[in-house]
C-alpha cells in the first residue's frame, strides 16, 4: 500500500513539545512535534467534537498510562495522538499519516 504524500508545512513551522494548526485540503489539522520520541510527529483533526471548536492544536501533550495524548484546552478530554481515540468518550477523531522529510512536513491523504 502506498500513500499519497503531500507537503503541508515546513519543519521550522512546528514548535517542540506542542501542536500547531495547519490547513490541509480544506481541513484543519493539528500537528504535534515531539523530537525526543519516535515517531516525532503526529497529525490529528484540530476540531474538538465535544467542545465543538478548532482547538486541539492548542492542548497540552502528555502520556496517560503509556498512551501519548493531547488534552482539549476547553473541557480537558484526552485524544490519543496515534489513533484519534478519545479516552473519556467513545469518539474517534480523524488522523493522518505524517512524515518529516528534508525539512518538510508531509501528510498522506
Amino acid at each position: 500500500m502506498s500513500f499519497n504524500w503531500k507537503t503541508v508545512c515546513k519543519q521550522e513551522d512546528l514548535i517542540e513539545g506542542v501542536g500547531v494548526a495547519a490547513l490541509f485540503e480544506g481541513e484543519q489539522v493539528a500537528i504535534f512535534y515531539l523530537p525526543k520520541l519516535d515517531p516525532q510527529v503526529f497529525a490529528i483533526a484540530n476540531w474538538d467534537p465535544i467542545a465543538k471548536a478548532n482547538v486541539l492544536s492548542r492542548g497540552i501533550v502528555g502520556s496517560i498510562e503509556g498512551k501519548l495524548v493531547v488534552s482539549s484546552p476547553l473541557y480537558k478530554q484526552h485524544f490519543e495522538l496515534s489513533s484519534g481515540q478519545c479516552l473519556e468518550e467513545d469518539i474517534v477523531i480523524p488522523c493522518w499519516q505524517v512524515s518529516l522529510e528534508n525539512g518538510e512536513v508531509k501528510l498522506a491523504s
Partner: peptide, 11 residues
C-alpha cells in the same frame, strides 16, 4: 491560527 495559511478559523 494556521502555520501554512494567513486565514482565521472560519468556524
Amino acid at each position: 491560527h494556521f502555520v501554512n495559511h494567513d486565514g482565521v478559523d472560519e468556524q
